[in-house]
Simulated assay, not measured.
Amino acid sequence: MEKQDENRSKTLLTRLKPAEYKYIYTSFKKTRFNKLSEYCRSILLSKPVVVTYRDKSMDEMLEELSLLRKELNAIGNNLNQAVRQINSSHGNADNRLWLNLLSIIGSKVDPAIHQIKERMQSFSVLWSQKLKPGEASSVQ
């Protein structure tokens, strides 16, 4: 069996109208190809072309969710620091009162924060299209 020439040495020159080029270029931008020549080669050789879809209206929502996640982490960290500080100063009656209040608040807030984080993660996975279309319905 002969070894095939791996270099692309042949050129195919095609002239297009501006509208045709615009159509091909916008189709190319929707794919995962880095170069227009790769896209055209795949189309001409009848190879599969993976087209991506991104809902750009969700970009602002994802950014907001990311900021919300950071804020929730900061709240949790502040709550933990307060509890550690109270635990480190033993004996005061005021400290015991604050410790009881913080433990009650923590027991109510922690599950809610955890649930919010899980939902945010599932939405970000869905919106960034890390899932295949068939798996999207299972994230809810």
Score class of each variant (00 low, 15 high):
16 L>Q: 03
115 Q>T: 15
69 R>N: 10
55 D>E: 05
4 Q>E: 15
124 S>N: 06
82 A>M: 14
76 G>A: 13
90 H>T: 13
97 L>Q: 11
49 V>K: 04
120 M>Y: 02
139 V>W: 05
130 K>I: 09
130 K>Y: 11
20 E>R: 07
4 Q>H: 14
21 Y>G: 01
24 I>T: 00
80 N>R: 04
15 R>E: 03
92 N>Y: 13
133 P>F: 03
86 I>Y: 03
47 K>F: 10
48 P>V: 05
60 E>W: 04
24 I>A: 00
114 H>W: 13
93 A>I: 15
131 L>G: 01
16 L>D: 05
44 L>M: 07
78 N>T: 02
79 L>D: 05
3 K>N: 09
80 N>Y: 00
52 T>Y: 12
50 V>F: 09
136 A>L: 11
123 F>A: 00
92 N>K: 13
130 K>R: 14
64 E>T: 12
11 T>G: 11
64 E>Y: 11
8 R>M: 08
29 K>Q: 00
134 G>R: 09
97 L>D: 06
59 D>T: 00
81 Q>C: 01
55 D>G: 00
33 F>G: 00
23 Y>D: 14
112 A>E: 15
139 V>E: 06
103 S>H: 11
64 E>G: 01
137 S>V: 10
20 E>K: 06
124 S>T: 01
57 S>K: 04
131 L>V: 09
136 A>D: 08
58 M>F: 02
54 R>D: 12
37 S>Q: 05
58 M>G: 01
86 I>K: 07
96 R>W: 07
115 Q>C: 14
138 S>R: 14
61 M>N: 10
70 K>I: 10
26 T>G: 01
130 K>N: 08
35 K>E: 05
6 E>C: 11
119 R>D: 06
75 I>P: 02
19 A>N: 11
110 D>K: 15
40 C>T: 07
48 P>G: 06
124 S>L: 06
64 E>F: 14
66 S>R: 09
45 L>G: 00
59 D>L: 07
118 E>C: 10
51 V>H: 02
38 E>F: 04
102 L>A: 01
116 I>G: 05
81 Q>V: 07
67 L>K: 15
84 R>N: 00
90 H>D: 14
108 K>G: 10
75 I>F: 12
61 M>P: 09
128 S>R: 12
53 Y>V: 10
31 T>D: 01
132 K>Q: 08
126 L>N: 08
34 N>T: 10
9 S>K: 15
35 K>Y: 10
99 L>W: 00
28 F>N: 00
103 S>T: 13
22 K>D: 12
42 S>F: 11
16 L>S: 01
32 R>M: 08
114 H>D: 13
100 N>R: 11
37 S>I: 10
67 L>Q: 15
92 N>R: 08
92 N>C: 03
58 M>S: 04
99 L>C: 06
42 S>E: 00
42 S>N: 08
132 K>W: 02
29 K>T: 09
35 K>H: 06
126 L>H: 07
80 N>Q: 02
94 D>E: 13
7 N>G: 12
34 N>W: 09
97 L>P: 02
46 S>E: 11
83 V>F: 03
57 S>C: 01
91 G>A: 02
25 Y>S: 01
39 Y>E: 07
104 I>E: 15
110 D>A: 12
116 I>Y: 00
47 K>T: 04
101 L>W: 06
97 L>E: 11
90 H>R: 15
120 M>S: 10
140 Q>G: 15
129 Q>T: 02
121 Q>L: 13
127 W>E: 03
40 C>V: 14
